[in-house]
Amino acid sequence: MTERMAVELDGVVKRFGAVTAVDGVSLAIRPGEVVALLGPNGAGKTSTVDMVLGLSEPSVGSVRVYGRAPREAVALGLVSAVMQSGGLLKDYTVGETVRLTAVLFGRPRERVEAVLERAGIADIRDRLVGKCSGGQQQRLRFAMALLPDPELLILDEPTTGMDVSGRHDFWSAIREDARSGRTVIFATHYLEEADAYADRVVFVRRGRVVADGTAAEVKALASGRTVRATLPGAGEQEAVLRAMAGVDSVEVRGDSVLVHASDTDEVARYLLTRTAARDLEIVARNLEQAFIALTSDEVAA
């Protein structure tokens, strides 16, 4: 392998007592990628992020960050993170909090000014953290994360609790920053965020990766429509349907068949004229539904 991966998870399992939060995740993320880790609450996103940051150890499997153990990568400032909540002291000012971070990483004073500017909080540097709004606190966490100039920035549900404009400002700052070529991984359960800001989307459900693709592939997943029909002996038609132009996937459930395709009219015509299909319906599938289909627990595996 010529290229060193930013993050490599290999068969990672994380158990908390009887609960398996992460259930065999293997994932390689290249330097420079902006990756969304998308999934509902409890899907194992935060547990995965914690292992990449060395905050917890996998029960099984290995995690490497730029070829190093996560703790080491963190200590060197190769990777940093904006966590969901907490992690700030109310009786420090904004400026002091960032200065302390600089002291810990052994970075010069100028770096403090630079990240305060970059995060858009230079004007509130003397404000006590306890007097800052949620959005300001989140930008402070962002400034702290930028301080060591990490190769990889991890954002765990970074806009939870922010209003629309706060969310927009925050993502503008992240987007601006990602232009410099930083690798970014963000965990989110907001589809719009994953769609708008990620090059690659990794769907996670019940501790497993259920889909992994470029943003374009995710969009393709969301485009097209689904034909559903009752068709006794549907299994016999599966191969034919799969071979039709524009068909993405065919799913047979007993006497039902579901065909996801870009040209559903052609599929419908075939089913109604050449087979015994009945009760046919065609439904549009949007990203929301794709997301629900891929991540909800109701779907039969």
């Binding site: 909540s85 700030l88 702290m144």
Partner: peptide
């Protein structure tokens, strides 16, 4: 104690300290 309650100890673990 206060620092643990605030999640600051966790934040510090994202530094070389």
């Amino acid at each position: 104690s206060v620092e643990r309650a605030a999640g600051w100890s966790r934040q510090l673990r994202l530094t070389p300290l």
